[in-house]
Each structure stands twice: as structure tokens, then as C-alpha cells.
């Protein structure tokens, strides 16, 4: 019973943390645009917390480079479970157009496990919202994992 309520609450209250990992700002501002009147992702309970300690969903835009991989790892570790990672944009998926640049490690999944991939260059707000909603479904699977 409580499990059910909890899962329901989780799916209705995804607090997000956005981390720009070396994106060109294209996906970044689209993520921010999701919060604004036209897209208003708060309809789904999404709050931009800006703080890993409070976040449920980590939205990562951009490629990982050698310096920010530690940051990404740190942020991921600091998030309390259950948590979902959404990689956004071509660079977040694979490194995109930058993948051959010298300081690029590659996609986000080189560093942390990724649950949802949102393609696009830049990904449109609609796609990002869709990615977040797909991420929510992961909570169904994750309800017994991660928390002891």
C-alpha cells in the first residue's frame, strides 16, 4: 500500500538537477526553457533544485571532459536514491560533433549509468520533457533498488 503511494508520489514529484557537462549551451537553455511558461514542466511536479542532495533526476547536457567527469561523478554520488539520469543531446549521448576533440571523454554513460537518452542537437524542450517522463517510469523499476 505504502509502496504504491510512494511510487505514485515519486512519479509526480521529480526534482531535477541540471548539470552542464561541457555542452554548447544549446541543450542547456532548452532545459531551462522547459521551466518557462510555454513548456512549464512544473505541471509534472518538476522543480529545478540545483542541489544534488535534493534531486531525483539528473539531467546532463554535453560531453564529458577530463575535468568535469569527476564533478559529474561527485554529483551523482551525492544524490540520494532512487535516482534517474537523463543524458540530453547528441553530445551527451556519444560526444556528438565533439567526440574527436582532444579533451572529450565521450557520452555521459562513460562515467555514470544513464537511464534515458534524449537525442537532438540541440534537443527540443518537448523531447527533454519526454525524456524526463520516460525517466519517471524508471522509478517503477527502481523502487526496491538503491534504498535500504
Amino acid at each position: 500500500m505504502f509502496e504504491k503511494i510512494l511510487t505514485r508520489a515519486r512519479m509526480r514529484s521529480p526534482w531535477m538537477l541540471h548539470f552542464d557537462c561541457g555542452s554548447c549551451n544549446g541543450c542547456d537553455i532548452e532545459v531551462l526553457a522547459c521551466l518557462t511558461p510555454v513548456y512549464d514542466v512544473e505541471r509534472f511536479g518538476v522543480v529545478n533544485t540545483g542541489n544534488p542532495m535534493h534531486a531525483d533526476i539528473l539531467l546532463v547536457t554535453g560531453t564529458v571532459n577530463h575535468r568535469n567527469r569527476n564533478v559529474l561523478r561527485n554529483l551523482y554520488d551525492q544524490m540520494p536514491g532512487p535516482k534517474v539520469v537523463v543524458a540530453i543531446g547528441a553530445c551527451g549521448l556519444t560526444g556528438g560533433i565533439f567526440r574527436q576533440a582532444w579533451n572529450v571523454v565521450g557520452g555521459v554513460d562513460r562515467v555514470i549509468p544513464v537511464d534515458v537518452y534524449v537525442p537532438g542537437c540541440p534537443a527540443k524542450p518537448e523531447a527533454i520533457i519526454d525524456g524526463v517522463v520516460m525517466g519517471l517510469e524508471k522509478f517503477m523499476e527502481k523502487q526496491h533498488v538503491d534504498i535500504s
Partner: peptide, 13 residues
Amino acid sequence: GFVHRGLEKLVEI
């Protein structure tokens, strides 16, 4: 250095 990718060097590729 958190966003540095080295794009200028991509002219070689």
C-alpha cells in the same frame, strides 16, 4: 576547463 573540448584543433579532422 570544465567545458574545454579543444574545438580549434578539430580543423585537422
